[in-house]
């Protein structure tokens, strides 16, 4: 990928990136109640990294984020399958999810879902896949 060397873009990205990343995490966690979820969150995170890629070059991005995205994909798949298979231990059909409410001292009432773990798998897979695609194409010159 070409180094665009664009001062305005570089400066703007430094600020924007955190907002996008934060928002993507928010949108992922909110997914069960409000629009969002693993797909959108993952895509948005990937979008943030793509923005970084467009602004800087691939080597810089690999330096900032030394993640093997193929392994991230695998981890995501494991999460999804693991959460789905977890219900088998409790003699429930594959993919049965559980949820419960927990009261934590500072954060207040929390609703915890195993479905969120599944969604986290989706999130990882989406980020991993998108970034694998973009990175491999970008690296190929």
């Amino acid at each position: 990928m070409r180094n665009t060397n664009n001062i305005i873009l570089e400066t703007a990205v430094k600020v924007l990136l955190f907002f996008i990343a934060l928002y993507s995490v928010y949108i992922f966690t909110a997914g069960h109640y409000y629009p969002g979820g693993g797909f959108i969150g993952g895509l948005m995170t990937a979008g943030a990294i793509v923005l970084l890629l467009i602004t800087y070059d691939i080597k810089t991005v690999v330096g900032i984020l030394p993640v093997n995205f193929r392994i991230l994909t695998a981890i995501g798949l494991l999460f999804a399958i693991g959460t789905s298979a977890g219900s088998l231990i409790f003699d429930a059909p594959f993919l049965t999810h559980a949820f419960g409410d927990v009261h934590l001292p500072i954060l207040g009432d929390l609703s915890l879902h195993t479905a969120t773990l599944f969604d986290l798998g989706v999130y990882f897979v989406v980020v991993g896949v998108t970034m694998t695609i973009i990175q491999t194409i970008g690296e190929d010159e």
């Binding site: 997914g31 069960h32 109640y33 409000y34 629009p35 979820g37 949820f99 879902h113």
Partner: peptide, 9 residues
């Protein structure tokens, strides 16, 4: 499923 976003659920 104790969720509100039907699509996500």
């Amino acid at each position: 499923a104790a969720g509100k976003n039907m699509v996500n659920v």
